[in-house]
């Protein structure tokens, strides 16, 4: 009698869970999966009169402009490399900041710091562009003025491609610090204080606490952030690059990314299918990367795999 009852109860619970997930499933299906049919446009020459399904199939034609450009490799490298720099440095610094905030959390001032750190997130990239220009420009930019005080020669930043990975990374950290440190802090704050008590009773130092308790408890969050970054590593943050780098040909060798190249092509040719094509490429690359890393993570640390 008992096994059947348990099995029925189990099924009830499973059903309840599916029911709870239903709203979200429907929303995602309708608004994300249904429009995915548009991906087919990557291979077509879309014309409204023919509609999506009857427009001419042109195979890989839409991909040609990108792969025959001679700079495809540079663009891919720039995109991936810069994104990698961004995510590694932002993660590192935001965990650090979250640890510090965690230390002083009992004081009201921690909440103030937390709020203040979040401010850069509110500033749109357009305004970040204005600020970075006023900071970096060679005519009367703040940075060159400061260098002058220290007796150093001014640099024409907007004409020196070699500095820009660093510049972009610094800006990225400044903008994302508040956002990500809140995520990690929320995790740290939820840690059962009893664990810390136990560690202290065992004679552990602060460093021990950090490495043995705090960090392991937020590891799942780190994994999620990294997975997301990995899946999107072939997509550059268009607003960021468009507003901070702008149309500056001189620094394009290190800052031109896939998305800005595609946007330029669309502006001149008016052909949006090119975006669909390259977008598909970016998605496929991200997909392979995710499936591969998920498999790796599953082997190492089953708990934290994405799926």
């Amino acid at each position: 009698m008992k096994p059947r009852k348990t099995r029925n109860r189990q099924t009830t619970y499973q059903l309840q869970l599916w029911l709870m997930a239903l709203p979200c499933i429907l929303l995602v299906f309708l608004f994300n999966y249904v429009p995915m049919g548009g991906i087919i446009l990557a291979f077509k020459d879309y014309s409204f009169s023919d509609g999506i399904f009857n427009s001419a199939w042109i195979g890989f034609d839409n991909f040609k402009f990108f792969f025959q450009s001679g700079v495809a490799w540079t663009l891919i490298y720039n995109t991936v490399f810069l994104n990698f720099l961004f995510i590694v440095s932002v993660t590192f610094f935001s965990i650090l900041v979250a640890l510090f905030l965690n230390e002083i959390f009992k004081w009201r001032i921690a909440k103030l710091f937390q709020s203040v750190l979040f401010f850069p997130h509110f500033i749109s990239w357009i305004i970040v562009g204005y600020f970075s220009y006023s900071f970096l420009n060679a005519d009367n930019g703040f940075l060159n003025v400061v260098l002058g005080y220290w007796g150093l020669a001014p640099v024409n930043w907007y004409a020196s491609p070699e500095y820009w990975p660093l510049i972009m990374t610094v800006i990225s950290i400044w903008k994302g610090l508040g956002y990500f440190s809140i995520i990690y802090l929320a995790g740290m704050v939820s840690i059962n204080p009893e664990l810390y008590e136990a560690a202290r009773l065992d004679g552990g130092t602060k460093l021990d606490e950090m490495f043995r308790i705090t960090l392991p408890m937020i590891t799942p969050l780190i994994y999620i952030n990294l997975f997301f970054a990995l899946g999107r590593i072939f997509y550059a943050n268009f607003d960021f690059f468009n507003n901070v780098v702008k149309n500056n040909g001189l620094i394009m060798s290190t800052t031109d990314v896939i998305d800005t190249y595609v946007m330029r092509s669309i502006l001149v040719t008016g052909d949006f299918n090119m975006a669909a094509a390259v977008g598909l490429f970016q998605g496929v690359c991200g997909f392979i990367l995710i499936v591969g890393s998920n498999w790796l993570v599953r082997r190492m640390d089953n708990e934290n795999a994405l799926f």
């Binding site: 402009f65 330029r264 092509s265 040719t269």
Partner: peptide
């Protein structure tokens, strides 16, 4: 010639405009 147009546009942006 849209492929060439796209590539020329980007070359012009990188080298021509400056």
């Amino acid at each position: 010639v849209k492929t060439a147009m796209a590539n020329v546009a980007n070359v012009a942006a990188q080298y021509g405009d400056p």
